[in-house]
């Protein structure tokens, strides 16, 4: 039992509880002026058999770290890895100042958490303005980033608008004449390595479904994501596009007319 990771957690602040992990903001050193890191603790799940639980946690933490490193090497915008403790289920990554794409798009802000409910709706437009990115450029960024990741043969496994962030302009030093922000893909907890057209198509399909269920009125946006993806993928696109058509028909008992 490496209690040093747990000790670190005990001095950190809990930010949120996601689907499978608790997320903390922590400082690796006592120097508070150092940039903070984000700790993702896959805590023990009481409902799961202990053996099953520990083996899942171990493989997921290691897998996530591995995928992040692979992405970093390929130049995909992802948070950098700061520490890994797969036995305790703790992963420390770069702290990203910004906002999830989900909250920046219409429809996504509601229902997320209760306290910000009252003021969330008129904010949507303002939020995007703060990042100085029009919606269609944001969609292009999403498409490009996914394409870069897929070209590195990394499959995200859980592409949703909650798992993408825009860096806040104040914390980002862009190259000259570039956008004041960048899109960062996060949460590689379900990612894996694969070069198969099938897996890439399924990855895109997961995002498509997430778009239509979280942002019911913004389905056309997804088309521009795909366009940007297409450009970046080059000649690989033809095969993926064809497979994506198949995948769409595959959901169970989806009406098979036409």
């Amino acid at each position: 039992m490496s209690s040093s990771s747990l000790a670190l957690i005990s001095t950190s602040t809990l930010i949120s509880q996601g689907a499978e992990a608790k997320v903390y903001k922590a400082h690796l050193t006592s120097d508070q002026s150092e940039p903070p890191i984000l700790l993702k603790h896959r805590f023990r799940k009481g409902y799961r058999h202990p053996t099953l639980d520990s083996s899942l946690t171990r493989t997921r933490v290691a897998g996530e770290a591995r995928a992040l490193l692979k992405c970093l090497r390929a130049g995909v915008n992802v948070p950098g890895v700061r520490m890994v403790d797969s036995l305790e289920g703790v992963l420390g990554i770069e702290w990203i100042d910004g906002q999830s794409v989900r909250r920046l798009l219409p429809g996504g802000a509601e229902e997320e958490d209760d306290q910000s409910e009252a003021d969330s709706e008129p904010e949507v437009v303002d939020l995007l303005k703060e990042y100085a990115v029009p919606v269609d450029v944001l969609m292009q960024l999403i498409g490009q980033e996914i394409a870069k990741m897929h070209l590195a043969d990394v499959i995200h496994g859980d592409l949703t608008t909650s798992n993408m962030m825009l860096r806040h302009p104040s914390s980002f030093k862009p190259r000259p004449s570039a956008l004041p922000t960048e899109l960062v893909l996060i949460d590689f907890g379900l990612s894996y390595h694969s070069g198969l057209v099938e897996d890439k198509a399924v990855d895109l399909y997961v995002l498509e479904r997430a778009f239509s269920s979280t942002h019911p009125d913004s389905e056309p946006l997804y088309t521009s994501v795909l366009n940007a993806y297409e450009q970046r993928m080059g000649k690989e696109w033809a095969a993926i596009s064809k497979r994506l058509e198949d995948v769409r028909l595959r959901g169970r008992k989806r009406s098979m007319v036409g």
Partner: peptide, 20 residues
């Protein structure tokens, strides 16, 4: 039972986290 129910609980939890 342990395996498939854990899977079900996991995706349900994912959906709960997703929509709050």
């Amino acid at each position: 039972q342990e395996t498939i129910y854990a899977m079900l609980v996991e995706i349900t939890e994912r959906a709960m986290a997703h929509i709050g």
